[in-house]
Computed example of a mutant assay.
Amino acid sequence: MNRQAGFTLVELVIALAIFSLIGLASYRLYEGVLITQARVSAHEQGLRSLQRALALLERDIMQATIPKEGVAVTLSAGQLNLQRVNARNPLDEPRSERQEVAYRLEEGTWWRYHRSLDLPETHKQQVLKGVRALQWRLYMDKAGWRSDGASTPGRAGVQPRALEITLSAGRFEQIRRVILLPEGS
């Protein structure tokens, strides 16, 4: 008699079951990697937005100047106000014009308002979206941290030494940054 070599039906069903289990496990692993990658990407995007916002604030603070009458950096009603100089233009030439800059939180969005002292037009720039809380404090010599006003009562013209910002945005809770004000401030 002639016997034919081959697989039985039971062997084929077992092989298909093993192959299906390996395929399902591979898919689950791949799906997990994609979900993790999406979460890491979203977290990285949030972190980059936060870093850009704080870098913009720090640049303005480092270029703050003392106006003829007053204080370099002031706080009023949760808004940070300052005057800055040395803004660069596209050709990287220094400008001598002063700018008024204000930062404030409006309905979950952190905004930057700026205008040249020579022009009446105010520009509005979105700094960061999804901000749940934003607090400012200034450090004054002999008075400590103050959350409103510019100087100690009875000591007009006292310049703040540092700015503290505390904010909650996106996945980040209670981000605190202390920025030393320039010597001239």
Rank of each mutant, 00 (worst) to 15 (best):
L91M: 06
G149Q: 10
E93C: 02
E97M: 06
N81Q: 14
L12S: 01
A87P: 01
G78H: 06
A133S: 10
V73E: 07
D60W: 07
E58W: 00
Q45A: 09
V71M: 03
R84E: 11
R112A: 01
V101Y: 00
L105H: 02
P94T: 08
I35M: 08
A77I: 07
E100T: 11
A38Y: 13
M140K: 11
D60Y: 02
L34N: 14
G23E: 13
L80E: 14
D148L: 12
R95W: 01
V10T: 05
A55V: 03
T122D: 01
A42V: 06
Y113W: 11
H123D: 14
V101P: 01
L138Y: 01
R112T: 03
R146F: 01
S96I: 08
R28Q: 15
I35G: 04
A15L: 00
R95L: 03
R115F: 02
R59D: 04
F7Y: 10
A15E: 00
T109E: 05
A143I: 01
L105M: 06
K129N: 09
R112W: 02
Q83V: 14
G108L: 04
T152G: 06
W136T: 07
R146T: 12
L75F: 11
S26L: 15
T74V: 13
L21K: 04
V33T: 12
A53V: 06
S26M: 12
L56Q: 10
R146A: 09
S26Y: 09
Q83F: 14
S20N: 07
K124D: 09
P90Y: 04
A55T: 12
L117C: 02
W110T: 03
R146M: 10
L16G: 02
Q51N: 11
T74N: 12
S116E: 15
